[in-house]
Design a protein around this nucleic acid. Structure first.
Lengths: 202, 202
DNA sequence: CAGCGATGTTACCGATCAGTAACGTACGGT
DNA sequence: ACCGTACGTTACTGATCGGTAACATCGCTG
């Protein structure tokens, strides 16, 4: 059960020095996403960020709290993405969903993708008092809420049913990405979403 | 980032004594599924199994190998389940898929469920030389193959598309289960599957 | 120049991790 | 009665984990 070890992270370049806290946070975000939360230790983070453990603990109270921050960042980033994709089609929920799935397929198929960081965290974080859990739960609840709202706005026959189905398609794509490097089932998500919406008369 | 610790596992009951290896393996399977692979250490396993570390390493070459065995077991168990669900509807692929989704929703909604152990492993296992990775990959590939085969058998207009979509629905349900304790989006999976199949004229 | 906040350095803590060596014991078949 | 197999016990290794104490240094501002 080996792990990401400090040495093999781009040889700890000391470069670029804007505010240590930010460097640490950026590095942590990337490592957590790429390698998983449990697989990345504090040593690996600070080394990759070109600093040391003390500077880390001067900026963050604990690793768990850093993880929670990472998840909050991912959450915010996700909704920025969502809103950006949806904006051009304001008032046209059907097109909005299509745009979302098109963008989702595109994003999830890129070779840097490791699915959804928040979904992955849902697997990795088992302690239910972990500060990150609440972030994950509220994030996924909001996704469900929005999909249902969109389904409702497009006057689907059964909005809750359609909304949930759309969510399952999207989440399934994230999960599948982890085992299918490219050309996986995700590629079918857009068409599937269209089919579902058609069937719901939307 | 706390973890399952040896003490809080049912106080290490020494009960039931058939073949230590089997006891260890059963215990490990349950713990891995319930708490995750990385969260469960060897000490926790052997203590919960009422034995000790030496007995473990006399039966298993390493933790990674135990994990791979666990995943192989989950894989076999899954296909037994699948075949059992599908058997009564031999020759009727449409009904087979419906039965699969009905059973899937049912299983995934039970309160002991923590989604799919193999999918969870896909998140937790980041090293690509881990002996468990291959198991996960071949498992998910087989799911995709079977769904596509079923879609083809039911003469769907686009079997590969439908097969992938069905897979996404199922995987999405597994993932959603981890954040929605009950009554989550999974409950819509069966109807969604029906809708998709209808739309494909199958 | 003085002083202060932000950072780096080194060395440490106790806990836990996967894994091993050496030895003791209980039981079952012959 | 003997012996081998299976199992338990204790103690240990070296690495890594998250987290901390004490002290040195840098650069900016007054």
């Amino acid at each position: 059960m080996s792990v990401v070890r400090p040495e093999d992270l781009s040889l700890c370049e000391p470069a670029a020095k804007p505010r240590v806290r930010d460097r640490i946070f950026e590095t942590a975000c990337e490592l957590f996403y790429r390698h998983g939360i449990r697989a990345v230790g504090i040593d690996a983070i600070v080394c990759a960020a070109g600093t040391n453990k003390m500077s880390f603990y001067r900026s963050f109270p604990s690793k768990d709290e850093l993880v929670a921050d990472y998840l909050r960042y991912k959450d915010a980033h996700f909704w920025t993405w969502w809103d950006g994709v949806v904006a051009p089609f304001d008032g046209a929920p059907r097109q909005q969903v299509e745009a979302l799935f098109a963008a989702h397929v595109n994003k999830t198929c890129s070779k840097e993708s490791r699915g959804c960081g928040l979904a992955n965290a849902a697997v990795e974080i088992v302690e239910d008092d972990h500060p990150g859990r609440a972030v994950v739960v509220s994030h996924k609840s909001e996704i469900r809420r929005r999909f249902r709202a969109l389904a409702s706005a497009m006057q689907a026959r059964d909005p809750e049913q359609l909304g949930d189905a759309l969510m399952l398609l999207m989440e399934g794509g994230y999960l599948a990405r982890l085992t299918f490097p490219k050309g996986g089932p995700v590629t079918s998500a857009l068409v599937a979403a269209r089919t579902l919406m058609d069937a719901h008369g939307a």
